[in-house]
Structures are given as structure tokens and as C-alpha cells.
């Protein structure tokens, strides 16, 4: 586990790990042994009279200077292992727009492909231009030793080269609310050739694949689940962060629009508005600013399916 060499970042990090862990185990074991020996040898029954030793300046200096040198060495390895993470991406890096929002990752490729897992070629620098739409998230790919916080309001870059094809975990490590622990995805590293053909194939996975289900409403339900909507909206009438889907469609809803209380009928337009411009009107009793527009993440077709799903919950 400790040495993976699965990315260009891993080597430096793992060297630092080996150096530091060796020092740790050396001192931990050594000091514990000394401690136990002292306790056994100098316990009252073995050594009834204690020698009144007050200290020893030479020893003090030795055990100040030696650890100082050792920690400076550890600092050095940590610093060199980290430097590649702080560097600018090479010019030929393959750029992917990465968007984090509450409990969902989204990766957009230069040719317009967009999906929720990260598919990348092996052996080629990949540069993630990362944005967050709401709170702080943090991208973490343990196998690649990659971790960077993504702060809302400013773009951050992370670049790396994955060495070996395979599937790896991708987590969010900065606590971001209710469904933090389900904000996980995976990295699929393909060989250069496989990646080429995958990238050229415009049909597959351009959007969250919804093909298997039959009825429109159940396809809508699947989209809702994949987008993580259920984290805030229930299907059974429970009040979570936002209003439940249950029994909304076609009924009167009291909303606050521009600071005024209005009653509207929840028709198809209302549902579309709520998804694309969530803060335009807020259902009474709920808070503004918690939901962001899903305009970029949904096609018109998908939006229709969601509307069908909500209709079905009447």
C-alpha cells in the first residue's frame, strides 16, 4: 500500500513516507524499549534507593541537536515530494473542467463530453481546472496521492500523470454537508489507445446514461438519484433541506418571490423554474441560497423526464 507509483506525484510522497515512518518506528520502538527496561530495572523492589540526579547538560544538548537534524531532513523530503503538486501544468496537458457541487462531481472535456466519473489516459499529463459552485470541496484520489481543496469563487488547478490503467477511488475530503460521504466517484485510467477511441465516441456517456428504464417517470427518478437531489428533497413528504416532491404537482404552493408572499400553481413551468433558477421563488418555510441552478448539468430531455417523475408522485 505504501508505495504505489501509480502517478507522477506518488514517488516523492512515498519517499517522504518511507523516510518519516522509518524515523517514527525507530524512535517509537527504541524509546519504548528503554522505558520498559528502566521501569523493570529501577522498580522499588530492585532499586530501593534512588540516585538524586538533577540533569546532564551534555545529554540535553545532544538530544536537542540530533532531533533537530533529523527533523530538518524530514522537512526536506516532505518539501521535495510536495513541490510537483505546486507546479504549473505542462503545456501539453489534457485539460478537464472539474466542477464540484454539493455531493456531485462533474467532469467536462474539451469536446463537450460531460460525465460524473473521471476518465483519463495513462502516461499523459492531465490538468483539472476545478471550480466549486457552493461550499468547499476537496478532490482526493488516494492512489495518486492527489488532494486539493476547491474553494468556491476561485479556480484551482491540479495536474498529474497516471501511470497504470485501472479504476481508482475519488473522494471529497472536505466536509461539505449532509451527503458528504456519498460524494464519491472513480477515476478510470485507460491506455492511450483505449482513451482515444473512448474520447472519439460521441455517443457513449455524454450524459448520465439513462437507457435501461422503460417509463419516463422511472427514468426521471434515476436522474434525480444520480444528481443527488434526494439529499435535500424527499419523495415521501419528509421535510429535509428543501420541499418534498410528494403531492406537489398541480397543487397550490405558497412561495416568496421578491420578498412578497405569492400563491402559485405548481405546473410544469414551476418545476422547471425551480430546477433552473431555484432562488427566483422560495417555498415558504425554506431558506434561500441553498440550491444552485442545474442549468449546465441537465439537457432539456432530462428535464422533461424529471418533470414526469414529479408528476408521477401525486
Amino acid at each position: 500500500m505504501i508505495t504505489s507509483n501509480l502517478s507522477n506525484l506518488a514517488r516523492g510522497v512515498d519517499t517522504a513516507f518511507i523516510v518519516i515512518l522509518s524515523v517514527i518506528f525507530f524512535f517509537l520502538i527504541g524509546l519504548t524499549v528503554v522505558l520498559i527496561i528502566f521501569i523493570l530495572r529501577y522498580r522499588e523492589s530492585k532499586n530501593p534507593v534512588a540516585s538524586q540526579i538533577h540533569g546532564n547538560n551534555k545529554l540535553e544538548i545532544i538530544w536537542t541537536v540530533i532531533p533537530l537534524l533529523i527533523v530538518m531532513a524530514m522537512f526536506y523530503f516532505g518539501w521535495t515530494g510536495w513541490k510537483p503538486m505546486d507546479s504549473a501544468p505542462p503545456d501539453d496537458a489534457f485539460e478537464i473542467e472539474t466542477t464540484a457541487r454539493m455531493w456531485k462531481w462533474s467532469f467536462k472535456y474539451p469536446n463537450g463530453k460531460r460525465l460524473d466519473t473521471l476518465v483519463i489516459p495513462a502516461g499523459k499529463p492531465v490538468s483539472l481546472n476545478m471550480n466549486s459552485l457552493d461550499v468547499i470541496h476537496s478532490i482526493y484520489i488516494p492512489a495518486f496521492r492527489l488532494k486539493k481543496d476547491i474553494n468556491p469563487g476561485s479556480e484551482r488547478n491540479a495536474w498529474f500523470i497516471a501511470n497504470t490503467p485501472g479504476i481508482y477511488d475519488l473522494f471529497c475530503t472536505e466536509y461539505c454537508g449532509l451527503e458528504h460521504s456519498s460524494m464519491i466517484s472513480s477515476v478510470k485510467v485507460l491506455s492511450a489507445d483505449e482513451f482515444e477511441s473512448w474520447y472519439a465516441d460521441s455517443v457513449s456517456e455524454t450524459h448520465i446514461a439513462v437507457k435501461t428504464e422503460v417509463s419516463a417517470s422511472s427514468r426521471g427518478k434515476q436522474i434525480v438519484q444520480q444528481l443527488g437531489c434526494n439529499a435535500c428533497h424527499s419523495a415521501d413528504g419528509t421535510k429535509i433541506v428543501g420541499p418534498s416532491y410528494l403531492g406537489v404537482f398541480g397543487h397550490e404552493v405558497t412561495v416568496i418571490r421578491d420578498g412578497k408572499t405569492v400563491t402559485v400553481t405548481a405546473d410544469e413551468d414551476y418545476i422547471r423554474r425551480s430546477i433552473l433558477d431555484p432562488n427566483f421563488e422560495i417555498v415558504e418555510g425554506y431558506n434561500k441560497g441553498l440550491m444552485l441552478s442545474y442549468e449546465d448539468l441537465l439537457s432539456d430531455e432530462e428535464l422533461d423526464l424529471i418533470v414526469e417523475y414529479i408528476k408521477s408522485l401525486n
Binding site: G12, V13, A16, F17, I20, M74, F75, F77, G78, W79, T80, G81, W82, M85, P142, R145, L146, K147
Partner: peptide, 8 residues
């Protein structure tokens, strides 16, 4: 405390 390992 070490930069590289901290990140991981």
C-alpha cells in the same frame, strides 16, 4: 508536518 505526506 511534512508537506508531501500531509497532503496524502
Amino acid at each position: 508536518g511534512s508537506l508531501a505526506t500531509n497532503v496524502h
